[in-house]
């Protein structure tokens, strides 16, 4: 007799035929994270002459539900670096609150005059992301690392695949489609950075955040913005998309009270 527990209480073979136990064994390979759960949308950033501006809204969506509306997705790391994250929020929290916090603590207790700068932190993060994707267990994020490094503004992105990319104007998520063209109008290439003032950069980023709020259904009008210069990091939480105009909505089907 078969004493294995999975054989107990089964229909008798001689009456019902051989029991099909195939569902008990999993022939599937191991699966790790296949999709993000609670997500943040775009991060946008732009270099200017003397620094970088970076912004991300405060929304964490659960599917299409606007689940949390006060999530901080920008994180200051060290003295002159800000890391912004889109994608899975819990993975972002792991990166921000575990890896980066302990990275900085370990750097600072050496007390030897060395400090991690934006390019170092960027390399570290991209290695972490790449290593996780090689384990087929990615951290489901797209990151922008903005900072002041070696007397220059620094801006680069890294994603869940370990892809790395650098440009004077960057945006993740929906912003990669909607904001980048707006940003490139102001800053087509690295050489253009020299002619962009801080005010201009902030205005452009604010404009991007407004447009993203118009057209990205997973976005929020409340966002955080940080300006990194050679001096320090200035952060502004609870920014609100300014000068909104929803006039166009009148001409679109499905908005407001309408006659068909």
């Amino acid at each position: 007799m078969n004493h294995l527990p999975e054989a107990w209480g089964r229909p008798r073979n001689d009456v019902y035929g051989t029991y099909d136990a195939s569902y008990l064994q999993s022939s599937m390979p191991n699966q790790h994270t296949q999709s993000p759960i609670v997500t943040g949308t775009s991060v946008v950033a732009l270099k200017f002459n003397g620094g970088v501006v970076i912004a991300a809204d405060n929304l964490a969506s659960y599917g299409s539900l606007a689940r949390f509306t006060n999530v901080e997705r920008l994180k200051q790391v060290g003295t002159h670096t800000v890391v912004g994250a889109g994608g899975d929020i819990s993975d972002m929290q792991y990166l921000h609150e575990k890896l980066l916090d302990s990275l900085i603590i370990k750097e600072e207790y050496q007390n030897d005059g060395h400090h991690l700068r934006a390019s170092h932190i960027y390399r570290y993060l991209s290695k972490v992301l790449y290593q996780r994707r090689c384990k087929f267990d990615p951290l489901w994020n797209t990151l922008l690392v903005a900072g002041w490094d070696d007397g220059k503004p620094f801006l680069a992105s890294a994603d869940l695949l370990g892809t790395t990319f650098s440009a004077p104007a960057l945006a993740t998520g929906f912003g990669a489609h909607l904001a980048v063209p707006l940003l490139r109008r102001v800053c087509p290439d690295e050489a253009a950075v020299e002619n962009i003032t801080r005010e201009q950069a902030v205005d452009t980023i604010e404009e991007c955040m407004k447009v993203l709020f118009y057209r990205d259904a997973r976005s929020l009008s409340k966002y955080s913005l940080a300006i990194i210069t050679g001096k320090d990091v200035e952060g502004a939480a609870e920014c609100e998309a300014k000068n909104q105009s929803w006039k166009f909505a009148e001409g679109i089907r499905g908005y407001g009270t309408q006659v068909v």
């Binding site: 609150e97 575990k98 916090d101 302990s102 603590i105 370990k106 207790y109």
Partner: peptide
């Protein structure tokens, strides 16, 4: 001591 501190943080945040 640094490891103890770091492990504590990992465990208890």
């Amino acid at each position: 001591a640094r490891s103890e501190a770091s492990n504590w943080r990992k465990l208890y945040r």
